[in-house]
Write a protein that binds this DNA or RNA. Structure first.
Length: 303
DNA sequence: CAAACTACCTGACTGC
DNA sequence: TGCAGTCAGGTAGTTT
């Protein structure tokens, strides 16, 4: 499940090998992987030939690989997308399953493969996208972006009457955070995922954002989080941050701070892991929809 | 207009 | 052994 640290590991891995290389051949094996390329798979293959790669970029979980001519190859890994770099005809490689797109180069025996079991990810060409594809202009800056205005971000979060985990996961508010690092950040800052943005003060929100930046920095240094073969770097290797996770995937294990059992609760159609002691559940709003339902069921009753 | 909901996907796993 | 059902979750498009 690639989030910002995993995508950055991939970006750096690609950057180390494709800068200055010129594409000679492109094969699309599954049209869904290029569904965001509006002119279709054949055009995707044809238009990429002869392009020369410059320095790969990233915002949040999106990647774009600029070309020397000002266009770019954009990418999102979705749930299971991977880039793999191998030598043509290399021996002893494990069979790559779910190869969707292959790129070969005029000046190198390297093969760049995009693999994706679940097809949530994809590639497309962004005309004049070298400085930032227009298709991702709605995506907010991420916590590693030196241009990020943390005060403005904190103010935006505090202005929202929505659960803070929804806000962390909203890529139009702050990008790069997915389910794993959201839960880890909330645990570190001792904030319950159901807390409303408006429940928090600026100091607490910034504490949460700094926790998120820190946990993702640590994950990046460890090569990312790998639960299974669904996330690996461009050489097919797993990251080591899974063992450092405090709550995610640790239902029933003791909290590293207080010893209480880590809980798992359904939220937004996925799982939220938290320490029910360190992270105090907020009282429901008197005016919330849930409070209205309770009031209707037990008129005059109090919570 | 903001917020919430749902379709898109495949493989691993569970229960009968 | 087989098979239906469940879960994993990021994004875009649709509905409320």
């Amino acid at each position: 499940m690639p989030e910002l640290p995993e995508v950055e590991v991939v970006r750096a891995g690609i950057a180390a090998v494709i800068c200055g290389k010129t594409i000679s051949e492109v094969c699309v094996y599954h049209p869904r992987s290029v569904r965001r390329h509006e002119l279709g798979a054949a055009d995707f293959e044809q238009t990429l030939r002869g392009r020369t790669f410059a320095e790969p970029k990233r915002r949040g979980k999106y990647l774009w690989l600029p070309f020397a001519d000002g266009d770019a190859l954009s990418a999102h890994l979705g749930m299971s997308g991977q880039f793999r770099v191998d030598e043509e005809g290399a021996q002893g490689l494990p069979e790559l399953r779910h190869v969707r797109v292959e790129l070969r180069f005029a000046d190198s025996p390297m093969v760049l493969r995009f693999t994706d079991q679940r097809l949530f990810g994809g590639l497309w060409v962004s005309p004049e996208g070298a400085a930032g594809p227009v298709e991702i202009s709605h995506i907010a800056k991420d916590l590693f972006d030196p241009q990020l205005d943390i005060e403005a971000l904190a103010a935006k979060i505090i202005s929202k009457h929505r659960a803070v985990k929804r806000l962390l996961l909203d890529q139009e508010i702050i990008s790069g955070i997915g389910n794993i690092y959201a839960d880890e950040s909330l645990w570190r800052a001792k904030v319950h995922y159901l807390s409303n943005g408006a429940d928090l003060n600026s100091k607490k929100v910034k504490e949460l954002l700094f926790a998120a930046r820190r946990v993702m920095s640590e994950a990046l240094a460890a090569g990312g989080t790998s639960f299974d073969a669904l996330y690996v770097n461009v050489a097919g290797e797993s990251g080591y941050f899974e063992r450092e996770l405090a709550v995610y995937g640790r239902e029933g294990e003791p909290c590293g701070r207080c010893g209480a059992q880590i809980a798992r609760e359904p939220f937004m159609g996925r799982s939220s892991f938290l320490c029910p002691v360190c992270q105090v559940r907020p009282k429901p709003y008197a005016g919330s929809a849930m409070a209205a339902v309770r009031a209707r069921k037990s008129p005059g009753g109090s919570q």
